[in-house]
Design a protein around this nucleic acid. Structure first.
Lengths: 316, 316
DNA sequence: ATGAAAGCGCTAACAC
DNA sequence: GTGTTAGCGCTTTCAT
C-alpha cells in the first residue's frame, strides 16, 4: 500500500501523507521486515564475502576495502569464515546462497567441485579475490603469487645472494603461499640454484615463530645468506632476532617477507617485502559486484601488480 | 510438503522417500530459499555483530570467539562495522534488525537513544560486549576498563615510578580507552600524583606512532619515568624505540600497554600489559545468544577480570 | 495520488 | 508416512 511507497521513496506520494506515514513509523519504532521485502521483490542488498581467516590481518584489510566501497551502493557485506577448510567453505557458500545475495566475493580460486557448481549456477556475479593463477568461475581480482615469488627470487639473486632458505606456514590449504614458493623456486632453478633449507610452522605468535624458525635454520644451515619468509610477520620476527644477535643485515644475511603490512613501518629496519594490494583488491571486487548489480554481464579478470619494496634488508 | 520435511530432518519420513528427495535436490543443485523459510517460520539463524573497526586486531579476535562458539549452534554471525561513528552504528543496527536476527552483539555501552530504543524493542537478546562500566540494555559481557586503568596505575606507583605520562588514541568515540585513562588518573590522584604529560595520535602505523609519541614525550618532558600506552601496538613501538636509544627499560623508564596481544611474545622484551579477555568475551556473548535462543530470558551482566602481566618493562 | 489483490517460496498445522 | 492448505509481511501490478 501507500506506506510501502513512502518508506522506499517510490512512486508519487503527496507530501502530506508522506509526512504522516513517516511520523507514524517513527513513533511506533517501526523497523521494516526485509525478509518479507526480499521475498516479494526478489532483491537482496547483501553481498556474501568468504575468507579463510580473521586472524591474519590481510583479510580484515580486504574487508575494509570491500566495506568502504559498498558503503555508498546500498549493498551490505555478510562475512563468512572458513578456517582454510574447503568443506567449511562449501558449507558457508551454501548457507550464504540460501539467502540469495546480490553477489559473492570469495577468497582464492581453489574450491570443491560442489562450491564451484553452486557459485556458477547461482545466477549472481561472483568475484574470486587475491589470486589469479588459475581459472575463475566468473570474475577475479588479484595478483599472481607465482610471479610475485619469482620476482622476489630474481631480486635476491641479482643482489648476489646464493644460499637461500625459506620459512613459511605449514597450512596445506594456503594455496597462495604455496604458489609464491613455487614461483620462487622456479626462478632459483633458472639461475641454477635450489633452496638451501626450508622451515615450516603453524599456529602461535607469528613474530615469535619467525624468531624460532630463523634460529633453527641458521643453526642447521649456517652458511645460509638469505631468508625468504612467506609473510611479513614471521619476517619481522626473523629481523628482530638477527638484529639482536648482532648479525649484519643485509650484509651477512638478507631478509624478505610478503604483504607489505603497516607494522613494518615501525621496525628498526625496513624489511624487504611486496605489497599484496589488499585494499585495492577489496575495492575492485566490490566495484565489480556493485557494477554488475546495475546490469553488466560477463566475467572479467583483473590482475593487479604488486610492487617490490626492497627496504633495507637486501644488499644493493 | 514432504520435501521440506526431508531437508530439515523433521518429522517422520521414510528412508526411501528421504533418499529420493535428497538425490533430486543434489542433482538439481537445489539451494533452499532461506528468505521464504524465515518469513514463514519467523525464525532466522542470524546473529548481528556490530563492531567499530576491523583494523584493530582486537575486534577480529572477538569475532573469532563468537564465530567459534556459534559454529555448532546453527547460528551465523553477520558483521557490521561502524568506524566508531554512533550515527553509522545506528544505521547498521537498523539495517540488521530489519533482517530479524535471533540476537545482537554490539560493542560498547554507548549508543544513540534511537539505537538503544531499537535494540530494547526488538524482542531479541542483545549482548553489549567489551565494557561493563555503564548501563546495559539487556545482557553485557566485558571488563571494567576503569578498573583496569586503576589497577595498572597502582602497580606502576607501587613499583616506585612517579613521573608518569600517557600516550593514546585521539578518537573521541573510543569510550573504553577513555575509561581506562579516567581510572588511571583516578588512581594517580589518590596517590597525590597527576599525569606528567600526555600525547595523542590518530591513524597511521601504530608501531610507528608509538615511536614518534615516545620520542615527543621524552623530548618535551625529559624527566618522565613511565609511559602508559592506550594499546600494545603503540607500546611496542615505544619499547623498540627505547631499546634502540639504549634507554634502560625498566630501570630509567617503565612501559605498559593494554590488550595482551599475541604480537608481544616476539618482542625483545615483554611489554607489561593487561589481557582484555577478547576471545573469552566473544565466546561468552555467543553463549548467551545461543542460550537465549533456547528460551531463557532476562539480561545478565558478566564481568571478566583481566590479569595484569607485568612483563619485563616494570621494575620490581 | 491512493487502494486492492495477487503472489514471492517456504513452514506449520492439520487432514488423510 | 505423506499430501493439503493457509498464511508469513512485504512488493508489484492494476484499478480507481
Amino acid at each position: 500500500m501507500t506506506v510501502s511507497r513512502v518508506l522506499r521513496n517510490r512512486g508519487d506520494v503527496s507530501e502530506a501523507t508522506r509526512e504522516r506515514v513517516l511520523e507514524a513509523a517513527r513513533s511506533l519504532g517501526y523497523v521494516p521486515n526485509k525478509i518479507a521485502g526480499a521475498l516479494a521483490s526478489q532483491r537482496v542488498n547483501l553481498v556474501g564475502v568468504i575468507i579463510p581467516s580473521l586472524s591474519n590481518m590481510v583479510f580484515p584489510e580486504v574487508l575494509t576495502g570491500i566495506s568502504d566501497t559498498l558503503e555508498d551502493t546500498g549493498l551490505q557485506p555478510v562475512v563468512g569464515v572458513t578456517n582454510y577448510s574447503p568443506e567449511r567453505e562449501e558449507a558457508v557458500i551454501y548457507e550464504m546462497l540460501s539467502w540469495r545475495p546480490s553477489g559473492m566475493i570469495v577468497a582464492g580460486l581453489e574450491h570443491t567441485d560442489a562450491s564451484r557448481a553452486m557459485l556458477a549456477q547461482a545466477g549472481i556475479p561472483t568475484v574470486e579475490i587475491m589470486d589469479i593463477d588459475g581459472t575463475a568461475i566468473d570474475s577475479a581480482v588479484g595478483i599472481s603469487h607465482r610471479r610475485a615469488g619469482r620476482q622476489m627470487a630474481e631480486a635476491i639473486i641479482a643482489a648476489g645472494y646464493r644460499r637461500i632458505a625459506f620459512c613459511g606456514t605449514m597450512m596445506p590449504y594456503d594455496h597462495r603461499a604455496k604458489k609464491r614458493l613455487a614461483g620462487f623456486e622456479e626462478a632459483l632453478a633458472k639461475a641454477g640454484l635450489t633452496l638451501a633449507d626450508r622451515e615450516f610452522y603453524s599456529g602461535g605468535s607469528a613474530l615469535l615463530k619467525g624468531r624460532e624458525m630463523t634460529e633453527a635454520v641458521l643453526k642447521r644451515t649456517p652458511d645460509v645468506d638469505f631468508l625468504y619468509y612467506s609473510n611479513d610477520m614471521i619476517g619481522a620476527g626473523g629481523l628482530l632476532w638477527c638484529l639482536e644477535k648482532g648479525i649484519d643485515v643485509p650484509g651477512k644475511i638478507g631478509l624478505a617477507g610478503f604483504n607489505g603490512v603497516e607494522l613494518l613501518d615501525g621496525l628498526p629496519r625496513r624489511l624487504a617485502t611486496m605489497d599484496a594490494c589488499r585494499l585495492e583488491i577489496g575495492r575492485r571486487a566490490a566495484e565489480i559486484i556493485a557494477g554488475k548489480h546495475e546490469g553488466v554481464i560477463g566475467g572479467e579478470v583483473i590482475e593487479l601488480t604488486p610492487t617490490l619494496q626492497p627496504g633495507d634488508t637486501i644488499r644493493r
